[in-house]
Design a protein around this nucleic acid. Structure first.
Length: 292
DNA sequence: CAAACTACCTGACTGC
DNA sequence: TGCAGTCAGGTAGTTT
């Protein structure tokens, strides 16, 4: 389940291994991951062939590789996507979806592989997207971005009525945060995810943003998170940040601060984990529909 | 514009 | 052994 730290690890790997090599050919083994390229897989492959990647950039959980044409290859890993840099003679992965060969791939050079079991992720060709693909212009900057506008984000959070967890997951407000790091950051900040944005103090929002940065930095230092081996970094090595999770996936385990068992509740068709003692729910709960 | 909900997808796992 | 059901969850799109 790649979130910002995992995607950043992948970006660094791509930056180190696939720049400035001419693409010799692209093989699309499953149409779904290139579904956003309306002209079809063959056109997708043709447009990349002969081009070179000049950089590896990221915004939130999106990655893109600018091309020497000013266009870009845009990627999102979704739930289970991987970008693997492999020797051309390495056996195909079970869920290999797209292969990008370079002119030196048969001479010991690498090949780039997009592997994705669940196919929530995908690749697309971003016309004119070298600087920032227009497809992702709505994605906000992440809290580690040097241009992240903290005061603006705090102000926007405090104008919203949704719970703070929902807001942390809103990629148009703050990017890069997924379910795992949202729960971890809220635990660190001792905030319950149902607390409404417009009822938080500036200091509360600042604290949870600090916590987001802390959790992400920690994960980045360890090379990303891995829970089920679906996420593997660009060279195929799993991260292991899951050893230091305090809330996510810890149902029934004692809170590291107070010992109260961590609780799990349903949230947006997924789960939220929190400490019921450290993270007090809001006093006034949202109106709940009740049967008369 | 904001909020809330759904579809999309596969595989591991559980219960009968 | 099989099969239906549940869960994992980021994003785009739709509806309210």
């Amino acid at each position: 389940m790649p979130e910002l730290p995992e995607v950043e690890v992948v970006r660094r790997g791509l930056e180190a291994h696939v720049l400035d090599r001419a693409v010799a050919g692209v093989e699309v083994l499953h149409p779904r991951p290139v579904r956003r390229h309306l002209a079809g897989p063959a056109d997708f492959a043709a447009r990349l062939t002969g081009r070179r990647f000049t950089a590896a950039r990221r915004r939130g959980k999106y990655l893109w590789l600018p091309l020497d044409t000013g266009d870009a290859l845009l990627a999102h890993l979704g739930m289970s996507g991987q970008m693997l840099v492999q020797p051309a003679d390495a056996p195909d992965e079970r869920h290999l979806r797209v292969r990008v060969r370079f002119v030196d791939s048969d001479a010991g050079g690498p090949e780039l592989r997009f592997v994705d079991q669940r196919m929530f992720g995908g690749l697309s060709y971003a016309e004119g997207g070298a600087t920032l693909p227009h497809e992702i212009a709505h994605i906000a900057r992440d809290p580690l971005d040097t241009d992240f506008d903290e005061a603006d984000v705090i102000a926007r959070v405090r104008r919203r009525t949704s719970g703070i967890k929902r807001l942390l997951l809103d990629q148009g407000l703050v990017s890069g945060v997924g379910n795992i790091y949202a729960d971890e950051a809220l635990w660190r900040a001792r905030l319950h995810g149902e607390r409404r944005g417009d009822r938080l103090r500036r200091a509360d929002v600042a604290e949870v943003l600090d916590a987001v940065r802390a959790v992400m930095t920690s994960a980045l230092d360890q090379g990303g998170t891995s829970f089920d081996a679906l996420y593997v970094n660009v060279n195929g090595e799993s991260g292991y940040f899951d050893r230091s999770l305090h809330a996510y996936g810890q149902e029934g385990e004692p809170c590291a601060r107070c010992g109260t068992p961590i609780r799990r509740v349903a949230f947006m068709n997924r789960s939220s984990y929190f400490c019921p003692t450290c993270q007090k729910p809001p006093r006034s709960r949202r109106p709940v529909s009740r049967v008369p």
